[in-house]
Design a protein around this nucleic acid. Structure first.
Lengths: 220, 220
DNA sequence: ACCTGAACACCGTTCAAGT
DNA sequence: ACCTGAACACCGTTCAAGT
């Protein structure tokens, strides 16, 4: 005999996301989420298959909340940059969750929607087939890679370490073995995550433009 | 009174890595590693601070084994592509470990070495300062993002699903809402991870070239 | 310094039973 | 269909003791 569900999937999503936001990824457990909802751990198995399902819940909550529609742009380049930046910002809003956003495979409508809104501008630029696929992969790789690199790249701040301390640490390295690393570390002072992302995207967009242009030539 | 260590750090590294390679990330635990080494769990605390240290052990093992030196190239572009591809392949050799390679922050000599060998070609190209930092971040983001996207992007194969099944699933989507996604999914048939990575890198390298070229103009 | 076993506070999940 | 508590086989880590 049927019984109405006690919770909505959305309720679970927001509860799970706030645990991750407030207490970190490790704090998300069947038992912790159940307690946050005022129920027993086993109740959650009516909504998810296993512990993995909790991660998917969080990823969906993050991707789902982002808005991918945008004002009509002035070209595929701007459209692409706009969607990419929105996606990057949505991910960055929940830094604790980034590892699972990168890691959990999920084919949900929300993911499909953002994928399509990246693919639209790329098709508009003239990409098709294998090149469309590669361009799509490159853009998404750059977006998630930049979000993650900000937190855990070699030049990222360590927890409880100031920017000045980070720079000092790199300046103390042997200057003739790590000249590039030292220069890059010094530059972190004059740099911002937004600036770095925009620059990185502009490199890639320039490259995509150049690829399209050279194909246009060989067609003619 | 001092006692000689029972294990070397390298012994732990290889034991930890083979657990991850053979049984997956979840199988790596203090107790499992201890058992593999024929000792008790508490012994490991002589070598690592905490569970997190086990992940660092694995990441170091992967990065450390890769060879980043390369034959003298014909330009910064080739040098950059060579190192990037070597790093990408090293990561791909241990697919189970990719989530922690992306995720665990670690400032070890091995990481510094590969970072510097990416920064070298970029400096040779003419990048400096904030642009050098952004270019470095873009390249590393592309490398790790492509490695991860191959496994968990929206177009990645699901475990126990054939390529044909994947394509069929996307072809079944509404063609007017997901035209790009369907075209990209169809292209996976004619595509390979190596081809996609090389294309993605060539987009980025073209963009870096173009950036440098346009600066040269404004200097003149 | 390094090794170790017992104990503690967790964890996901199976099972069996309830509505 | 959905909810639930008890029980089981794990887990990381503290503590106290040993060399």
């Amino acid at each position: 005999m049927g019984r109405p569900p006690k919770f909505t999937r959305e309720k679970l999503q927001t509860a799970a996301l706030s645990i991750v936001d407030e207490q970190g990824l490790e704090a998300l457990s069947m038992r912790a989420l159940a307690q946050a909802l005022g129920t027993g751990p086993m109740t959650l198995y009516s909504y998810v298959d296993s512990r993995e399902g909790l991660d998917v819940l969080v990823v969906e909550a993050i991707i789902g909340k982002a808005v991918w529609t945008h004002p009509p742009g002035t070209g595929w380049q701007d459209d692409l940059r706009y969607v990419a930046r929105a996606m990057w910002q949505a991910v960055r809003l929940h830094p604790n969750a980034i590892p699972i956003v990168l890691t959990r495979r999920s084919r949900t409508p929300a993911i499909f929607a953002v994928a399509e809104s990246l693919l639209g501008p790329l098709r508009g630029a003239g990409f098709a087939n294998v090149q469309l696929l590669a361009a799509f992969r490159a853009v998404t790789a750059l977006i998630v890679g930049m979000a993650q690199g900000e937190l855990t790249g070699p030049l990222a701040l360590k927890a409880g370490e100031s920017a000045a301390e980070t720079i000092a640490k790199f300046e103390a390295l042997p200057r003739d073995t790590y000249p590039g690393l030292i220069e890059a570390a010094l530059a972190t002072d004059r740099s911002s995550p937004e600036g770095e992302f925009d620059l990185a995207m502009s490199f890639l967009v320039r490259g995509l433009e150049s690829q399209i242009a050279s194909q246009g030539e060989s067609d003619a």
